[in-house]
């Protein structure tokens, strides 16, 4: 989190004067569930990239590959896991317990506190 400014040093009325500065707000701190990428299963369909509300799906455009998550901004909403067609083949909903037990899932949501590298 950037250092907080005083009332004299910010635009009035809550205005944001710089376009696209949402990247400066690390919404990753809100996360309760963390997405985990199962690279082996991924079919690189970009559904997660399309649906992510925080533009937090990292892709390699040259090789047309999904490569991971921008965890600075990912709020852990789980939409990526929900829309992932690989996951859909396994279960209808990305239930967390099932997800942890099933290595075939491309994107699984893991409780932030329990996450270990």
């Amino acid at each position: 989190m950037a250092e907080l400014k005083g009332w004299r040093d910010i635009p009035i009325g809550g205005m944001i004067l710089e376009a696209g500065n949402a990247t400066e707000y690390p919404t990753g701190t809100w996360r309760a569930f963390r997405p985990v990428f199962g690279e082996a299963e991924c079919i690189h369909c970009f559904q997660c990239w399309l649906f992510c509300p925080d533009s937090s799906i990292l892709v390699d455009p040259e090789n047309e590959k999904m490569v991971g998550f921008d965890l600075e901004h990912c709020k852990g909403c789980g939409i990526c896991a929900s829309v992932c067609p690989v996951n859909a083949k396994v279960i209808k909903k990305a239930d967390e317990e099932l997800a942890q037990d099933d290595p075939r899932l491309c994107i699984r949501m893991v409780e932030e506190g329990k996450f270990q590298e």
């Binding site: 907080l4 400014k5 005083g6 009332w7 910010i10 635009p11 009035i12 009325g13 809550g14 205005m15 944001i16 004067l17 710089e18 376009a19």
Partner: peptide, 28 residues
């Protein structure tokens, strides 16, 4: 000073304003 129609200087009016800055805007 801060027209939304000033396309050279895009800006946002009325964004979410939490416990970190809402109070400062009231002070203004």
């Amino acid at each position: 000073q801060w027209s939304l129609l000033d396309l050279e200087h895009p800006k946002t009016y009325g964004p979410l304003d939490f416990y970190d800055y809402y109070y400062e805007h009231k002070r203004q």
